[in-house]
Amino acid sequence: METPPDNDVLWGRSLRHAHEGSPALLGVSLGVRDGEILAVAGPRGSGKTTLLRCLSGQLVPDEGEVWFNSAPVHTLRRAARERLRRERFGWIDPSPRLVPELTARENAALPLLLTGASHRAARQAAQEWLERLDVGECARTRPAGLTQAQRQRVAIARALVTVPEVVFADEPTAALHRADHAQVLRTLTTAARSHGITMLLATHDSGVAEFADRTVALVDGRRTAPEGALC
């Protein structure tokens, strides 16, 4: 097996994946440097989400390799990949996907509780992140009582609460109005930079790429621009 370059925290090589026969990724290679914000740009159906899911260990690619911190991810068993996602990665969906029966603070605290943190510590960390993301006053409200923008902020707080090494944000502003777009992205990228979190930001909006250090373009499951190519 070929070992990845040392300065890449996350590395995917010749990733191919098909969903029930429909091809999504057709040999994508990608390296993500430590602490950078990398935008994965492309229209709907270009394979952005599949690429992020393969890199984050949610999906095992049909072909190709994924390495994280110089250790292979694609060969890990399911339990080990779950643990990796729980402890080292954060994930933000296009729509918030909060647990409806828990309050905003409990939702944000959930990843910490799952990693075995004490209730008090998890609660405190969740409250701090909610306040940083301007939704501190909604801490005791359930998702049904929040606006979509507030829910998405809670989802972002949930992804950052464990201070993960890599955050995967799959179109984090897709469900928001334009007014909220820039603000949410600014908060997200600022938080990532101030805590040294590496971030992959999938987007179909060219404006989003402004917030990133580097952009990788995908079309029909393939990388198009050679910009920032590492392989």
Binding site: Q58, E82, R83, R85, R158
Partner: peptide, 16 residues
């Protein structure tokens, strides 16, 4: 099932 999918997305182990 929506809650289960969300938890699986957070990397919650099956035993939880």
């Amino acid at each position: 099932s929506a809650t289960r999918r969300t938890l699986a997305g957070l990397g919650a182990s099956r035993s939880v």
